[in-house]
Design a protein around this nucleic acid. Structure first.
Length: 269
DNA sequence: ATGACAACCTGTGGGC
DNA sequence: TGCCCACAGGTTGTCA
């Protein structure tokens, strides 16, 4: 999955198709996801309808009359709207059928995703989350204040969901490049002005990715079934060993906390 | 409180 | 062609 832009693209893709349609059936073919899928999902949803599709971090929140279905796409999940007649493919784990013949179908090869039933947004998986990156309460001052005394890398800091949500590996790499900050620099040793640049970079990159239909991912499929195009505008991610698009210096690839990091040793300090 | 790391899974691609 | 290993978009829980 998907990072935040892919989740937001999914939300926008499915919302117009599913809102207000009565749910006629729920089919769970595989309940072993990141957490076991609620056994009572069917009786909770059938007969009702979705009133709104929201997003918090990388969670999709589908509100019905009686509660909220919370979906996470994990690393490899996708939601698509299709007709019910379409035969399920390998790894199509969950269907939500609507009156009229449409179906919201969840596919997830790695099964790192999840389906939860919520009675309110007061849920342990949501409660400790940091600010939304696109809202005004996420800014350079917030990052600066949170980072004081932190000795871990600024990249790990940026990917910490308690600091800011929705910034995964790809966009962390890209944002740090845009802001000119070395990913392996200690978070506590980055100045306020540079955190202001970083916060702006995060916002610009996420907004740009959402506008382009979400996807940086080779195999990502949006909610309407259209494949997003593989982003050529990525400046560093997946380009280790190649020339920096800005200065031609060779991009360096390292491992940080078991994730691939790519940066330009000349542009990023 | 912070941080390092294992864990949850399957699929794919590279090297031999 | 086939086998084995490393790695892939994320997040949580545990332990030092």
């Amino acid at each position: 999955m998907p990072e935040l832009p892919e989740v937001e693209t999914t939300r926008r893709g499915i919302e117009p198709h599913i809102l207000g349609r009565q749910i006629s059936a729920v089919v769970v073919r595989e309940h072993r996801l990141r957490w076991p899928v609620d056994n009572n999902l069917s009786e909770r949803l059938v007969g009702g309808s979705f009133l709104k599709a929201r997003r918090r971090a990388k969670y999709l929140l589908l509100d019905s009359e009686t509660g909220t279905l919370m979906v996470h796409l994990g690393m490899s999940g996708s939601l698509r709207v299709m007709t019910r007649e379409e035969p399920p493919m390998f790894h199509d784990h969950i269907d939500i059928h609507f009156d009229g013949g449409l179906c919201l179908r969840y596919n997830d090869p790695r099964r790192f995703g999840s389906f939860h039933w919520l009675q309110s947004d007061d849920h342990p998986l949501l409660n400790h989350l940091g600010p939304e990156p696109l809202l005004d309460n996420f800014d350079g001052a917030w990052l600066y204040n949170k980072s004081r005394g932190r000795r871990s890398s600024v990249k790990q800091f940026l990917m910490d969901g308690k600091i800011v949500v929705g910034v995964g590996n790809i966009y962390a790499n890209e944002a740090l490049f845009m802001a000119g900050i070395r990913p392996d620099r200690a978070a506590g040793r980055v100045a306020l002005s540079r955190y202001e640049a970083l916060a702006q970079a995060v916002k610009r990159i996420l907004k740009g990715a959402i506008e382009q239909g979400g996807t940086t991912l080779r195999d990502f499929v949006g909610g309407d079934g259209k494949p997003g195009y593989f982003a050529q505008q990525l400046k560093v991610y997946g380009r280790g060993g190649q020339a920096c698009r800005h200065c031609k210096f060779t991009l360096k690839e390292i491992r940080q906390n078991n994730r691939t990091t790519v940066f330009c040793p000349q542009c990023q300090r």
